[in-house]
Simulated assay, not measured.
Amino acid sequence: MKSCDNTSVGVIITDHQGRYLMFDRATFPVGAAPAAGHFDNHGGAEAAGRAEVKEELGLTVTSLTRVTGGWRDNSCRRRPGARGTGTGHNWTVYQATVTGDLTPSARETKNVRWIAPAALQELADRTVAYAQGRVTDAEFEAAPGLEPVWMQWLADIAAIKVSTDELLQVELLAR
Rank of each mutant, 00 (worst) to 15 (best):
1 M>D: 11
1 M>E: 11
3 S>V: 08
6 N>V: 06
9 V>F: 02
12 I>A: 10
12 I>H: 02
13 I>F: 08
13 I>R: 00
14 T>G: 07
14 T>F: 07
18 G>D: 08
22 M>N: 00
23 F>Y: 14
23 F>P: 00
24 D>H: 11
24 D>Y: 04
26 A>W: 02
26 A>K: 12
28 F>D: 10
30 V>Q: 09
30 V>A: 13
31 G>D: 05
32 A>K: 06
33 A>E: 09
33 A>Y: 01
34 P>E: 11
35 A>E: 05
41 N>W: 12
44 G>M: 11
45 A>N: 05
46 E>C: 07
49 G>C: 08
49 G>E: 03
55 E>I: 04
56 E>P: 01
60 T>A: 15
62 T>P: 02
63 S>E: 15
64 L>S: 04
64 L>N: 06
67 V>K: 12
68 T>S: 15
70 G>E: 10
70 G>S: 09
71 W>A: 12
73 D>A: 14
73 D>I: 00
74 N>D: 15
75 S>N: 11
75 S>T: 04
76 C>L: 03
77 R>K: 11
78 R>T: 02
80 P>S: 13
81 G>A: 10
85 T>S: 15
86 G>I: 00
87 T>P: 01
87 T>I: 14
88 G>I: 00
89 H>Y: 11
91 W>H: 07
92 T>S: 13
92 T>R: 02
94 Y>H: 06
97 T>D: 15
99 T>K: 14
101 D>S: 15
101 D>M: 13
101 D>W: 07
102 L>G: 11
102 L>T: 05
103 T>M: 12
107 R>M: 03
109 T>I: 00
111 N>W: 03
112 V>Q: 01
113 R>S: 13
113 R>Y: 09
116 A>V: 02
117 P>S: 11
118 A>Y: 06
118 A>H: 10
120 L>M: 09
123 L>T: 01
124 A>T: 06
125 D>T: 13
127 T>K: 03
128 V>S: 03
128 V>Y: 06
128 V>G: 02
131 A>E: 01
133 G>F: 12
135 V>W: 03
135 V>A: 08
135 V>I: 15
139 E>M: 05
141 E>T: 11
141 E>A: 15
142 A>L: 06
143 A>I: 04
144 P>W: 07
146 L>V: 03
146 L>K: 01
147 E>R: 06
148 P>N: 08
149 V>P: 00
149 V>S: 12
151 M>G: 01
153 W>F: 15
155 A>Q: 04
156 D>R: 04
157 I>Q: 03
157 I>D: 09
159 A>Q: 02
160 I>V: 15
160 I>W: 02
161 K>A: 14
161 K>E: 14
163 S>H: 11
165 D>N: 13
166 E>Y: 09
166 E>C: 03
167 L>T: 04
168 L>T: 12
173 L>R: 02
174 A>H: 04
175 R>Q: 12
